[in-house]
């Protein structure tokens, strides 16, 4: 049994280097154990961590994009599934094009889940202004489903380059000071500011742009599931906005339970 120690939950580069070396030797997927950091290993594995030579392999272009996304998925099997796919791709390069293949469709769905999570994080992060002397810092608390914090940094840097901002998550935090990005430790919700005066104005916009003549809670819930509501100041208004609508809509809002939100403890719905 070979053991590969990866630096982090989202260590795509580490996976890539190791996978390349292992695949060059055609080490079967069931002979490799993928580990993150210093997590305890089982007995066999403890002895087998070896330095890996740097090898190059040729894979279809598409493969790296798929692997880079799937590496961010919260499924503990992701590194192993990807390595098994790599071995298969080396023999059947066209298999990636076959989305109807059972295993490919599983990995493509994982890729989609990560993509959706990234998109929803871009959409639903809400900054609150924190005054630090002369300076303002915009701070957000967010709980992604997958290990996407670092992967979303570029989006926020491009968008808010001239602002000081921080994004806090249960897995780590990011801080931008208009020049450089630094990483910080995992945070708690209470580390972020509890309010921002602009939220009252935003809520008044949210309430006014809603058209009560066209209530359609199902469409809203599909795109903005309840699990995100706790981070969205405007979501607090939803029950009262819907209250004026039909009984059926009120029931739909009341019925759906809030999804418990802790990383890694929830079974993967896909």
């Amino acid at each position: 049994m070979r053991v590969v120690r990866l630096d982090d939950e989202d260590d795509f580069d580490g996976w890539r280097t190791a996978a390349r070396a292992l695949a060059a030797e055609r080490v079967p997927a069931d002979q490799v154990l993928w580990q993150i950091g210093d997590a305890p290993t089982d007995l066999f594995a403890a002895t087998a961590g070896t330095a890996l030579p740097n090898r190059s392999l040729t894979v279809p272009k598409d493969f790296l994009g798929l692997a880079a996304s799937v590496c961010l998925h919260r499924d503990p099997q992701r590194f192993s599934l990807l390595y098994a796919l790599l071995l298969r791709v080396l023999v059947q390069p066209h298999i990636l094009q076959d989305r109807a293949d059972r295993r490919i469709s599983v990995l493509r769905r994982m890729q989609q889940a990560v993509g959706r999570d990234v998109h929803k994080m871009h959409a639903f992060v809400r900054f609150r202004e924190l005054t630090e002397g002369e300076q303002s810092r915009f701070v957000a608390w967010f709980e992604p489903d997958h290990h996407i914090l670092r992967a979303t940094a570029g989006f926020f840097v491009n968008r808010f380059a001239t602002m000081h901002w921080s994004i806090l998550t249960p897995e780590g935090s990011l801080h931008w000071d208009t020049r450089s990005l630094t990483e910080g430790p995992p945070a708690e919700k209470t580390d972020a500011p509890g309010d921002d005066p602009v939220e009252a104005i935003w809520k008044s916009y949210y309430a006014s742009t809603f058209n009560p003549a066209r209530v359609n809670s199902r469409a809203m819930l599909k795109e903005m599931p309840k699990k995100y509501w706790h981070g969205l100041p405007e979501a607090a208004l939803i029950p009262s906005l819907v209250a004026g609508a039909s009984q059926r809509e009120r029931e739909m809002i009341a019925r759906l339970p809030t999804t418990p939100r802790r990383m890694g403890r929830r079974p993967d719905p896909s």
Binding site: A123, N158, N211, N216, M224
Partner: peptide
């Protein structure tokens, strides 16, 4: 992108982002 500029703001050039949905289901 706002990198290198004096202000804020970016666009993807592709599809936009829906930041919230109201109970009428619109973005």
């Amino acid at each position: 992108s706002s990198v290198g500029g004096k202000g804020i703001g970016s666009t993807s050039g592709g599809s936009g982002i829906c930041h919230a949905y109201t109970p009428d289901g619109r973005c």
